[in-house]
């Protein structure tokens, strides 16, 4: 394994650990409620009076999670496309140079 690959693996492991450790260490006591929702509850305790409703609300948690997945998929798809093209370009340049010399 090259040093660069090792670095990548460690970085990925670090990210995974940061996500997994809270769940493991917690042992099922917390609900992991979203901070945005918690802040909205706190805002209502502080006297916020919502005066406008969302123009469109996903009708169920399933629909909502699907739309969030769509957002992530769009982003991930574009990101993967760009990185793939850039990598393809570099490999093509390299083989051209190798062929030319």
């Amino acid at each position: 394994m090259t040093r660069s690959r090792l670095g990548t693996a460690l970085l990925v492991l670090g990210v995974l650990a940061l996500i997994a450790l809270p769940l493991v260490l917690d042992g099922g006591t917390s609900e992991f409620a979203g901070t945005d929702a918690t802040a909205a509850e706190l805002a209502e305790e502080q006297g916020a009076q919502p005066w406008f409703e969302s123009v469109f609300s996903p009708s169920s948690a399933e629909v909502e999670s699907g739309l969030f997945a769509l957002q992530a998929a769009l982003g991930g798809g574009v990101l993967g496309y760009v990185l793939g093209r850039l990598r393809g370009r570099r490999l093509a340049e390299r083989s051209r140079e190798d062929g030319g010399s």
């Binding site: 940061l18 996500i19 450790l21 809270p22 769940l23 260490l25 917690d26 006591t29 917390s30 609900e31 992991f32 409620a33 979203g34 901070t35 918690t38 969030f68 997945a69 957002q71 992530a72 769009l74 982003g75 991930g76 798809g77 574009v78 990101l79 760009v82």
Partner: peptide, 18 residues
């Protein structure tokens, strides 16, 4: 795209919220 992905993903944190 990077912002699009990252802001769609809610992740757990050590405080017991996500």
């Amino acid at each position: 795209a990077f912002t699009f992905v990252l802001s769609a993903v809610k992740l757990p944190s050590f405080t017991g919220s996500s």
